[in-house]
Amino acid sequence: MRSHHFSRIPAALLAGALAATTLTACGSDDSGSGSSNKVKIMVGGLDKVIYLPAMLTQQLGFFKAEGLDVQLLSEPAGVQAETALISGDVQGAVGFYDHTLDLQVKGKQVESVVQFSHAPGEVEIVSSKAEGDIATPKDFKGKKLGVTGLGSSTDFLTKYLAVRDGLKTSDFTPVAVGAGQTFIAALKQGAIQGGMTTDPTVANVLDQKLGKVLIDMRTPEGSRAALGGPYPSSSLYMNASWVDGHRETVQKLANALVKTLRWMSSHSAEEIAAKMPADYAKGGKALYAQSIKSTLPMFTKDGVMPADGPETVEKVLKAFNPNLKNADVDLSKTFTTEFVSRVPKG
Rank of each mutant, 00 (worst) to 15 (best):
H5N: 07
F6T: 10
R8T: 13
R8M: 11
A20F: 13
A20I: 14
T21Y: 08
T22Q: 09
A25D: 11
A25V: 11
S36H: 10
N37L: 08
V39G: 02
M42V: 02
G44L: 05
G45I: 08
G45V: 05
V49R: 01
L52G: 03
L52M: 15
L56E: 02
Q59A: 14
F63G: 00
D69Y: 04
L72A: 05
L73Q: 12
S74Q: 08
P76A: 13
Q80F: 08
T83M: 06
T83H: 09
D89C: 06
V90K: 05
V90P: 00
Q91M: 09
A93R: 01
H99E: 14
L101I: 13
L103P: 05
K106L: 14
Q109N: 15
Q109G: 05
Q109I: 07
E111N: 11
E111M: 15
V114S: 07
H118N: 13
P120S: 09
G121V: 02
E124Q: 06
V126E: 01
S127N: 12
E131Q: 14
A135P: 09
P137Q: 11
G142A: 12
K143E: 07
K144R: 15
K144I: 05
G146S: 07
G146T: 06
L150M: 12
G151M: 09
S152D: 15
K159M: 12
K159L: 11
L161T: 00
L161G: 01
D165W: 13
D165Q: 15
L167S: 13
T169F: 10
F172A: 02
T173I: 11
P174D: 08
P174V: 10
P174E: 07
T182M: 06
F183G: 00
A186V: 03
A186W: 02
K188D: 15
Q189V: 06
G190A: 11
A191Y: 08
Q193L: 07
T197R: 01
T198N: 06
T198P: 00
P200E: 06
P200T: 05
T201M: 10
V205D: 06
V205Q: 00
V213I: 15
L214A: 10
R218V: 10
E221A: 15
G229Q: 09
G229K: 05
P230W: 04
P232Q: 09
S233G: 12
K252A: 11
L253Y: 02
A256L: 10
A256S: 12
L257G: 01
V258F: 08
K259L: 07
W263S: 13
M264E: 02
M264P: 02
S268G: 04
S268C: 07
I272V: 15
A273K: 08
A273W: 08
P277L: 14
G283Q: 08
G283M: 04
K285I: 08
A289Y: 03
S294P: 01
S294F: 02
P297N: 13
F299Y: 15
D302V: 00
M305T: 04
P306Q: 07
P310R: 01
E311I: 03
T312H: 01
L317P: 00
N321G: 07
L324C: 08
N326P: 05
A327P: 12
A327E: 13
L331V: 12
K333G: 01
T337Q: 10
E338L: 14
V340M: 05
R342F: 03
R342G: 07
V343Q: 10
P344C: 10
P344R: 04
K345C: 04
